[in-house]
């Protein structure tokens, strides 16, 4: 089971800033263990996909990401989800403060 995620979304200067923490081992090929890393990250604003990211093994364990979305309003629903190479997934939702 995937560990917790934590997210904060704030409005300022005409932008929505999203900061999200993820629990993930991000195991690389160098470790000798089976590869296990997040491949896709999707950010949705009120149900509409605004960012689709493909990331590689070159990201730390328990990564932190920040995204900046143009515009937005207080109370907007922001959802961030990830999908890893084993098909595991997790997501978190928050309202813009």
């Amino acid at each position: 089971m995937a560990g917790p995620m934590k997210m904060r979304a704030t409005l300022g200067g005409g932008f929505t800033d999203v900061r999200v923490l993820m629990t993930h081992p991000m195991t690389t090929a160098q470790s000798g263990q089976p590869l296990h890393f997040i491949q896709n990250i999707t950010v949705k604003q009120n149900g509409k996909t605004v960012i689709e990211a493909q990331i590689s093994q070159a990201v730390s364990r328990n990564p932190v990401f920040t995204f900046r979305i143009q515009g937005g309003a207080k109370g907007d629903k922001i959802e961030v989800s990830w999908l890893d190479n084993k098909g595991e997934t997790n997501s978190i939702e928050t309202a813009v403060a």
Partner: peptide, 15 residues
């Protein structure tokens, strides 16, 4: 410190 995974430990610890 602005985006510390320590916060993930706090969540798990509360559980």
């Amino acid at each position: 410190s602005e985006g510390s995974p320590a916060e993930l430990w706090e969540l798990e610890g509360e559980t």
